[in-house]
Design a protein around this nucleic acid. Structure first.
Lengths: 338, 338
DNA sequence: CAAAATATTTCAAACGTTTGAAATATAACG
DNA sequence: CGTTATATTTCAAACGTTTGAAATATTTTG
């Protein structure tokens, strides 16, 4: 039960009456070490449950074998799903992952970044908070030669950086087109916080789908909200306040927000409620429990986004890709009809 | 952009033409160091963005300042909510947290435990997988003097270990009593996988509430399922198959499962559907979107469970509590009426 | 059997930090 | 001004591992 002397190379060496280097090389299977010696060392190591001290190795190798992830929160299934992709791949290559939540706050994000920098992570994967405008806390990493991959959320200015993003344009295009094919002419677009860049990409996808299919665009059919329910209701009230432009369909930037919208329309007994068809981004597992589910969902494939992010990061860490040879990877969306 | 010589104590010392130890002590605010020297060192450290190498410190201190968490998955809000409590507290004390998912598989859990052991975590918090019967992979930690706190899920045998658990008995009692107060006499209990220990605690809470309130117990009102939808439907069919014991209320072990049940009852147009009142464990954020939500939820306070787990673990790490002085902490549930 | 070739083991320095003991500088005192 | 007291800085070892170079042991060869 007690942990007396920790089992180190030195300890093994003393037991076996040989030098530390022999033990080390035997365990690392050096060809210059005698087979019989190797066997003796390896057996002893196993019996005494020797585990190499990672801190020592990391110090020697000047690496931490830790990858940091900063994301807005873990309650959003998009992010938890994206982690699955990252984790599995990282572990396979001997990396540990430290996950931390910024709660979509800039200050918290800065604090986490500093913490991870101090922990000397070998790389960082980040979905920036919705407040993040200043990137100094992240430039620090590159300054120290630590690669950073921005994922899921696109930094708002045209930052030179490595990105892995969902193809928001394509996703919104798909959704809009689908609704047009179902004979809708008054399709509303409910966008998210303007601070979050993908809002615009999605808007463009929406616009382009309208144009390509000869449906006229009307600003009265566009409104914006954020993650706040009251604001969503206001936006919906606004969308449905123009009698000659009443929406018959709706594309919403995020599913839980869409659910708020649907709930509200239902609660006010909107006359044409049953005819209104909605699509939101997310494909939330919870949809199957709704009485009036959206007609379809834009599946963003977050696992794939995460997987691409970690793969890119590992390539950067291993210098298979130059740090300043900025990559941009887009992951396509898929329409899931319910 | 390039990372030439890394900024180390040695580097600072050379720049400042003083010894490494002076620099180290100045940064650590030793009283023996001259104030003016301290100022010079600290300024230089700031300007050159010196960050102490954690691996070196950890090696010296024989700690990793990393806490491992193993939990079944991140899609269950119970677990993601519990992490919030852990993370914040850990960070406050300078610890990093490595989160990993067992996907409720024993083999995966074993693999993760080995990985964390190799990473020399200073402590482990674990919610065991539903398959875990053998605990050798976890005993290893104690064998090396690394504290382990079992949380959320109770090991199935009467293991000597540190535990932080939700008070499942009390939660189920509360739910059952609430339904009795609402004049229900035929209250069904839908339990979870029998492998997961809390199923029984909840059953006991249910039974005791019935007894204490003079409601007779009937085995026909009890059924078990797991996380599989088909099995839930079978269980519900079973519960509603005894004409002289038709449930008018239902206590379910987990909310998403309860939603499956509700959905099924609604889909078959159960004649008394609107009168049936349900309560599940969880208090899921999505409840507000349901057309026919449960009458109430058992709020398990996972944040508090997580917070208690990390607090206990830190006490064990700091040897404020003896490793073999086993603690058991119960976190009460709360009934939330919708 | 000595010399050369090869196999195997050990030495020693390095990674970056901390810290008690020793050394040196500065101030205070009679 | 020589001592003693105090303030400040430096030395040196340690944490546990890796690895090229050096040392030693063993085998082969003429």
């Amino acid at each position: 039960m007690e942990n007396k002397t920790p089992v180190t190379l030195k300890f093994l060496a003393e037991k076996l009456k040989m030098s530390v280097s022999t033990v080390s090389k035997a365990l690392n299977n050096y060809p210059t070490i005698n087979e019989y010696t190797k066997k003796r060392v390896q057996e002893m190591a196993r019996d005494l449950r020797f585990t190499p001290n990672k801190s020592a190795i990391n110090l020697k190798e000047r690496k931490s074998r830790i990858i940091g992830i900063i994301l807005p929160n873990l309650l959003d299934q998009y992010f938890t799903r994206s982690i699955a992709g990252v984790e599995q791949f990282a572990m396979q290559f001997g990396y540990n992952v430290i996950i931390s939540q910024s709660h979509d706050e800039f200050e918290k994000e800065k604090q986490l970044a500093d913490m991870l920098l101090k922990s000397r992570v070998d790389g960082l994967i980040i979905a920036i908070s919705k407040e993040t405008q200043d990137f100094n806390h992240l430039y620090q990493f590159e300054h120290m030669g630590i690669p950073v991959v921005y994922y899921a959320r696109n930094p708002s200015f045209n930052l030179n950086c490595h990105k892995v993003l969902g193809n928001n344009f394509q996703g919104a295009y798909l959704a809009t087109q689908f609704l047009i094919q179902r004979k809708h002419q008054k399709i509303a677009y409910l966008g998210g916080p303007k601070m979050i860049n993908f809002t615009h990409d999605r808007f463009n996808g929406y616009i382009n789908a309208l144009k390509d299919n000869g449906v006229s665009f009307n600003t009265e059919l566009v409104a914006y909200t954020d993650f706040n329910k009251e604001n969503t209701i206001k936006a919906i009230q606004n969308l449905f306040s123009h009698p000659e432009n009443l929406p018959t369909a709706l594309v919403a930037f995020k599913e839980p927000i869409l659910f708020d919208a649907i709930k509200y329309l239902k609660s006010i007994n909107h006359p044409n409620f049953s005819q209104i068809e909605c699509i939101g981004f997310g494909n939330n597992a919870f949809i199957s429990y709704l009485d009036t589910p959206p007609v379809a969902s834009v599946e963003e494939n977050p696992e794939s986004v995460g997987e691409n992010a970690i793969k890119l990061l590992l390539q950067l860490i291993n210098k298979e890709i130059e740090l300043d040879h900025y990559q941009k990877i887009m992951v396509d969306c898929k329409l899931v009809v319910h």
